[in-house]
Structure formats: structure tokens, C-alpha cells
Amino acid sequence: MNARSKSPVLVRARSSVCALYGFALVALALAFTHPLILLAVAAATFGAARLSGVQRQLRGAVRFAIPLALMLAVINGILVRDGVTVLWRFGDLPFFGQLDLTGEAFAYGFLLALRVVVIIAASALTVAIVDPDDVLRRMRRSAFRSALTAALATRMIGVLTRDARRMDQARRCRPDGGGSGRRAQLLMVGSVAAGALDRAVDVAATLELRGYATRVAPPRGDRVPYARADRAVLASALGLLALLLIGATFGLANFEPYPRLNIATDLTELLYAALIVLTALAAPIVGERGRRR
């Protein structure tokens, strides 16, 4: 089908290579706390999202991540007593003992926060570019139950979101406005949750009725060959994984947060960060150019 032929490369490529691409970005963010590398992964993630037209999904995820990340930064600053640059000394406090707020603890807290934001953004990119229908098709024969669960979960998000939206509108149609505050919210959540099982059963019944459980194999010789978009995204994903392996093997972009924050930033780190961005963005850019030609 040509339903996705006008889509950007990362959206058009098959789900398996898109998933690998997203996984590589998440793995890089998990492997390094060096701010330069995290910023490079962030730039790669947002660049890829922009080139794929899914920046809106990313913005939503980041909005959700920022409060969580800030909380993490503050908690690290308060609870970690390492570091030599004391910003504030509270002295001995009950339960806490001696409490010193150090610059290093806050700085490292903010780096952890940045990592959380980048990981959530890369995960959101993965969700946005991987076609769940394709995942459902590919997993059907090898992991039927997992695919069924994944399909149900994917579909149920939409169904329950619309249920909740409709119920919220119905609540607002009540003469008293349906109340407000936590109790009204709890009632709504409870009601949507109570209906979730029925809805899941209905969706599962539909999957059965469409013959999902039969697991008939497609005819031989009917495999889709790797398209240019698939090859481009796969190359980028493998490149990112290779960079991850090289970085981990040679101990690149290491830094020590305590006792004094020491972020080594020489040419190697700069080059390494630049390579991450270039490798990640090569697929969407080169793939698009190839198509225009």
C-alpha cells in the first residue's frame, strides 16, 4: 500500500528499524551523563522529530518530563552530601544529620534531570515513529500473546481517552457542573477504569472476529524488500549503536561529579557528540534527499 509514501523517512521506514533507531538513542542517553553527550542526543532526538513531523508529540512528553526532572534535581541537591563547594550549611538536623547543600550535588542533580528529559524525549520519538499496526503484524506469529496485549494496550489508550473525554463532557452537562476537584476527578477515573475491562473485552472480541488468532502465515516470497528509507534508518541506528559501543569501550566522555565536578571536554568529546548528531540525522536527511532526486 502507498498509504505512507508521502511520510518522512523515519515514519515511512518499517517498524523494526525505527524501533532500533529509537532504542539506540535511548541507550546513548542511558549510557552517558556527560552533558555534552546528553545535549548531542537531545539535539539528535529533536532534530529527528522535527524532520519527521512529530515534534508535537515530543513537546507533550517533555512538558510531562520537566517537573519530574526538576524534582529529581532538587532531591539530589538536598540529599547528597558529597561535593566540596558548600552553598549552604544547615548544621545538624533531626533525622537528616548534618545537612550541607553543595554546588556539585545540585549540578549533578541537574545533569540527572537532563538525562531523564532526554530519555523520555527519545522514548516519545520511538513511540511516534514506530507504527504499532506493523508491530502487531510482525509479532503475531512469533509472540502471539505479547502482540495481542500490545495491540489491546495501543487501541485501549485511544478508546479510554475518548471515553474519558465523553464522560467529562457528560459531567459538565449536569446542572451542578458535575462538581469539581479531587472527588469529581476520582469519580471520573473510577468510572472509566470500571468500564475499561468491558471495553478491553470488546476490543479483544473484535480481534478474534477479524481472525487474528488464526496465525496463518503470509505466502512465501511475499516479504517486503528493504526500501531506501528502511536502509537509511537501519544504517543510522547501527551507526548510533556502534558509537555507543566505541564510547563505552574506550571510556569516552567520562566525568566525575564528586568531590569536585570535573567535566572533561576536549576535542574527542566534541567530535564524539558531533558524530552522534550527524549519524542520527543522516537517515532523515539523506533519505529525503534521495527521494527528491
Binding site: 498509504a3 507504527d131 504499532p132 499496526d133 502487531l136 495491540a151 495501543t154 487501541r155 478508546v159 475518548r162 471495553r199 470488546d202 476490543v203 472480541a205 473484535t206 480481534l207 477479524r210 487474528y212
Partner: peptide, 8 residues
């Protein structure tokens, strides 16, 4: 509403 299971 529950009779469609795919995204498109």
C-alpha cells in the same frame, strides 16, 4: 468504537 483495532 471498539470495532476497529488498527491505527489507520
Amino acid at each position: 468504537e471498539t470495532q476497529v483495532v488498527m491505527q489507520t
